[in-house]
Design a protein around this nucleic acid. Sequence first.
DNA 1: ATGAAAGCGCTAACAT
DNA 2: ATGTTAGCGCTTTCAT
Lengths: 336, 336
Amino acid sequence: MTIDDLARLAGVSKATVSLALNKDGRIPEATRKRITDLADAHGYRPSTVAKSLRKGTTKAIGLMLPDIINPFFPGILKGVEEVAAQNDFIVIFCNFDENEAKESVYFEMLKDRWVDGIIFSGITGGAEEQKYVRAFEEKGVPIVFIDRGLEGHDGNLVQIDNYDAGYRAATYLIDLGHRRIAFVSGPEGISILRKRKDGYRKALADHRLEVDESLIIEGDISSATAVAAVERILDRPVKPTAIFATSDIVALSMQSELQKRGCRVPEDFSILGFDNLPITVIVHPTLSTVAQPFVEMGRQAMELLLALIQNKDSQRRKVLFNAEIIERESTRAITS
Amino acid sequence: MTIDDLARLAGVSKATVSLALNKDGRIPEATRKRITDLADAHGYRPSTVAKSLRKGTTKAIGLMLPDIINPFFPGILKGVEEVAAQNDFIVIFCNFDENEAKESVYFEMLKDRWVDGIIFSGITGGAEEQKYVRAFEEKGVPIVFIDRGLEGHDGNLVQIDNYDAGYRAATYLIDLGHRRIAFVSGPEGISILRKRKDGYRKALADHRLEVDESLIIEGDISSATAVAAVERILDRPVKPTAIFATSDIVALSMQSELQKRGCRVPEDFSILGFDNLPITVIVHPTLSTVAQPFVEMGRQAMELLLALIQNKDSQRRKVLFNAEIIERESTRAITS
DNA sequence: ATGAAAGCGCTAACAT
DNA sequence: ATGTTAGCGCTTTCAT
């Protein structure tokens, strides 16, 4: 059933149908009602495809994610989807698997499909990426970044205040009485992790604690890294009393590795994670952590994107969230 | 840049460009090369929107999921996306939040957008659902179900053999020497859970073990259920030695609750989960579980959908996976 | 208050 | 071997 069929049924031209369905003021209420009733009765709905070709806009956005299996992306996806659906937009899910070639293929696809905007999480900063981002923006297709932005491209970014989060995490442990706090993180190259580390360093400095460089351990989020970190910590002549990991996965891996070796959490080591993944509450002890509001970040990113889509010249914006410490069982106060 | 622009540049008609780009045999290699080179040089790519309108097909599929936060859906999404991308299809992500109204809205959207097919996981079986499914199939838009299908609608279904999985899980524990095995599961109404339970019962029967009905505990996947289950088990005058939970989440919740109460796993209780979620390896003890191949299920669902899309009259198919027992640290052999 | 007609970018049947 | 043309389903300008 097309607009022509409906026009015939209603005994009007398709122009009138179109105007009526789009609530154009020129069509009197009576005619409008007759047409919409007929449309409902016959289950007529205008083709989005035809609309898109005609209007040059698709009410579709692309969501580029490095790997949906990584447990902080589902929350982002959910938040983006929620706001998109409320605004009658669909989200095209692009999982590029941290693979540059696949990333480029998706960029091309999004271009071919005339998406109205793009949300991009997990940018690596490669040359191809830069090229595509520029190209989209030149064509007036806005891009919002989550977590990390493109170098030299400030704005249209949704993230938490990582420096502040690192500062508060360390301060929290210090206030609990800890003086030797290991910092276990991912690759030093990732800017958000560097900021967390800077915050951690600053907190120690502000409390006149010396930073023991051997307690700063940087690897990745694999369990091998966690095991290595545990070994390094247990090897120290004078051990730390607390561990701040910049990922719940690492924190949990270390916790279980310590338990396996007969150490108790939090009696022997307090552990503080990062992200507040759902699993943190179903382990023993439950994990204290720094919460990232993933779903809300997804929502805000989509809101921002909508604003940019609807108002092309809208100001670049940066949305900054404060991370929140969630205290559970894996951390405890000590008296030194 | 449109096909007309390119045609002008190449000094041919747009028909020739179209044929060349679509590798039609009638265009000689020389002309074709000239045209594709020109296209590459100018970054020309045909509009998918225009193609869709013309051909009536979109190379887009809808993936309906009840809630992406639930940790077994990311794997499915990933598998679907992987095969879709390989075949130049995009996936429209529809998270209906276990909400019938939102589900209907998405069905309408998918219809308006002329998707070529739908993959549906987490069907509830409501009346609206039935209606939409029939409508799509009548219009020749195939639907593949994951996990559960529609009642009285067999085929186009990808799932694990739940009966067999229940049977093998119980047998595994029995072979380990356990004689009293609690079965902790979700709502009795869900058919896949009922099948797992039937398999469990059959395994006990085959080994001449009596089923203790008080050890069959059905709730949901909340931690409240897990706590209640633990209490019930600890209250028994003669306690079970093993627990088979039909979800890793429940298994992990029970494990941590037991640990909190001073019980040891696996010394006091062996615990077997279900799903093989990524977290099962970063808890202590690591969780033995029945693995569901989520990613592979997603892949197969998409493969099946592609077959149906390409060959409308293709036979309805049912893809059945065998679940696999993954032995880790939470289960142990006992000598009664 | 409503209709006619052009056109969005492409494909495919039919011509030449 | 290549071109002409109609048309996919809609919106929008311009007429009436």
